[in-house]
Design a protein around this nucleic acid. Structure first.
Length: 158
DNA sequence: GCCAACGTTGGC
DNA sequence: GCCAACGTTGGC
């Protein structure tokens, strides 16, 4: 089977879950995704895929660290929690609508690779992240895009 | 805090 | 199946 994406970009609002939280916990369940395209991306993930962690809705938006997909996808239990913010009555244990994945912490970058820096990377020009009005929270990256980001990081002080 | 852009819902 | 209305995201 050919795998199109081996790398992903995961957005998070640091006020809810930050790279520091991730580093402390070392492993986290990426759940609560309630967008179909993002969900479909979760279902394409494979153990060992890389994941850039991106802080959004801050004063310094950008890539802040790196993790690794460390489980196959499984039903998102937050959809079953009636009292929780992510409850969805259309999802059931017998027939889950939403899916989650486990991500293991790998690295916190010493410096945020800001959105404006990312815009200067040629290989990323077609990336969903940089499109105006983009709201997708789980974005697939091809290996060219991923290595361009890593190259940029290695060139800097990180 | 504003507002443009987007995804989803629901009426028809 | 269209599309207006709505709620949410996310950069600034």
């Amino acid at each position: 089977m050919k795998i199109e994406n081996n790398y992903w970009l995961l957005k998070t609002e640091p006020s809810l879950f930050s790279i520091d939280d991730f580093q402390r916990e070392q492993k986290t369940t990426w759940e609560g995704v309630r967008n179909f395209e993002a969900r479909n991306n979760i279902k394409k993930m494979q153990v060992g895929d890389g994941a850039f962690i991106y802080h959004s809705s801050t004063k310094n938006n950008g890539i802040v660290g790196y993790g690794m997909i460390s489980s196959p996808y499984f039903p998102d239990e937050t959809a079953f929690d009636i009292k929780g913010p992510y409850y969805d009555q259309k999802s059931s244990e017998q027939n889950p609508l939403w899916w989650a994945i486990e991500v293991s912490f790998k690295q916190k970058y010493h410096k945020v690779i800001t959105l404006s820096e990312l815009k200067t990377i040629k290989a990323l020009q077609k990336c969903r992240l940089l499109k105006k009005g983009n709201r997708l929270s789980v974005i697939g990256l091809d290996s060219i895009q991923a290595s361009a980001i890593m190259e940029y990081i290695n060139r800097g002080v990180n």
